[in-house]
């Protein structure tokens, strides 16, 4: 192994014959040397950049400041500027639409798959594993495949639609605002639904079989069993899954960037894409920081709300 730091645990010179204080110091030293490198690393590479980015949103940071330093304090100017722009609010709105659509579709598909593969049959685990491929596929791969499937002239989807008489000629799904959003939502849900399937399958496993047996003896139909047993019993897991899916889709950048690059005409420019464009298209790192800060605040608010309802329900 390349773990270099903990080597020092081996008898530090001054502590060769530890007295009481020495032993205490050693007892604290070993854990620190095991844990600290990772903690410091995460602090330096995640916590610090995040704080730095929030700080940037209060400064005047263009490309020159990035290269030379010396950014000017701007107070709330960046926020005032961004919150006064319709383009910002439009992309906030697109973000919500995209995340909401993705959450609903991901959850529905994940629940459907989990229910379908709930009962044990030979080869069930193979099917689960095959479906999981959609989840582990690199986004670049799946995004490109979706672009090809949705191609207006030669795409498989349009070929299928033409075959059943639903479409004549070409339809460029990624070239129109509404169909473009629908397309990125479908591609996102395709990738995330297997993840939802795993979460919800675990939830379904946790429901006691005796509940269903009792219901069957009482003559409950499959639908009634779902309505009065599965639904309430699955609720805690389902809520957690919904929150997780939201967190993951709300921050999605690559799928959209690769499929539509935020187009057509900004119709799929979600907040992450907006922030990227601000920074790398227009070299405005300050207003980009405003966008990413907002991007963080929404899931945090939702998580807090989630844990509060949890506590209220448990009380």
């Amino acid at each position: 192994m390349t773990a270099a730091a903990p080597v020092h645990v081996e008898i530090p010179p001054g502590l060769a014959r530890p007295g009481r204080r020495g032993r205490r110091a050693r007892r604290l030293l070993a854990p620190a040397l095991f844990v600290l490198p990772a903690v410091v690393f995460v602090g330096a590479t995640v916590v610090y950049p995040l704080l730095y980015s929030v700080l940037q949103s209060f400064f005047d940071v263009g490309l020159r400041e990035v290269v030379q330093g010396g950014a000017r304090w701007a107070g709330l100017d960046n926020y005032v500027d961004q919150f006064g722009r319709s383009r910002f609010w439009y992309s906030f709105f697109i973000s919500i639409v995209y995340a909401a659509g993705s959450v609903v579709l991901t959850f529905a598909a994940g629940l459907g798959l989990a229910l379908l593969l709930r009962r044990a049959f030979r080869g069930r685990n193979v099917l689960r594993a095959l479906i999981l491929i959609a989840w582990v596929l690199p986004t670049v791969v799946s995004a490109n495949v979706w672009r090809w499937l949705l191609d207006g002239s030669y795409g498989l989807l349009n070929a299928a639609l033409r075959a059943v008489g639903l479409l004549e000629g070409d339809l460029f799904w990624l070239g129109r605002p509404v169909t473009a959003i629908a397309a990125v939502v479908v591609a996102t849900a395709w990738s995330f639904a297997p993840f939802a399937m795993i979460l919800l399958s675990a939830g379904l496993e946790g429901i006691s079989r005796t509940l269903y047996e009792a219901a069957r003896i009482d003559g409950a139909s499959p639908w009634q069993q779902f309505r009065y047993i599965t639904r309430p019993q699955l609720r805690p897991v389902a809520l957690a899954a919904l929150l997780l899916i939201f967190i993951y889709t709300f921050k999605t950048f690559d799928t959209i960037f690769l499929m539509t690059a935020g187009g057509p005409g900004g119709a799929t420019t979600t907040l992450p894409v907006y922030a990227y464009n601000e920074a790398f298209e227009f070299s405005r790192f300050d207003t980009a920081a405003v966008a990413t800060t907002v991007l963080m605040v929404v899931p945090i608010v939702l998580s807090v709300a989630y844990f509060r309802t949890l506590r209220k329900e448990n009380a």
Binding site: P49, L50, S53
Partner: peptide, 17 residues
């Protein structure tokens, strides 16, 4: 918690740093 952080939120400040 750190795992929930959007990559783009790190990528932009990282570029500057």
């Amino acid at each position: 918690v750190v795992q929930m952080v959007p990559s783009i939120n790190l990528a932009l400040p990282m570029f500057v740093l």
